[in-house]
Amino acid sequence: MALNNNIEALLDKYFEGETSLQEENVLKEYFTQTDVPQHLEQYQAMFAYFAQNKKEKAPQNIQVKPSKKSWNISWLPKVAVVLLLLAIGYAIYPKGISKAEKKEAQIAFLETQKALKLISQNLNKGNVAVAYLDEFEISKKKIFKK
């Protein structure tokens, strides 16, 4: 009971902000034990929280010494711009010719070749006629010379 009275006196002082660190430690110890009189129970959570919060650690990924990590990244945006341009160029530029297109082109080529051959054959036919015309010309000259 004497201890309880003492604790209550300390609590009064505590709430006035006049306890020393040692006295506050007495309170902390007292309230972390399990059996606390019912009328003081509400303070248990308070001191339990203080003790618990003191154990909270800073996250591991806080770098205490940052120098190694701090490599220069000023070139990053430049690389990004170049990559972006390349990507745009690739998107706009025609894609490589597909196999089907190649075949089609070959067929068209052969077809034209055939047509041109036909034309040239016919042209040759014309040649014979022209040669004949030449003959006509020669004989005409012979006649008219005289």
Partner: peptide, 28 residues
């Protein structure tokens, strides 16, 4: 006192991530 710095930052900023950033900044 690294953890103390973090806990103080967290008490100010409440957010865990913001406190982490602030602590990192101070340590740097």
């Amino acid at each position: 006192f690294k953890d103390k710095l973090f806990r103080l930052a967290k008490r100010y900023l409440i957010s865990h991530d913001a406190a982490q950033d602030a602590t990192q900044d101070v340590l740097l």
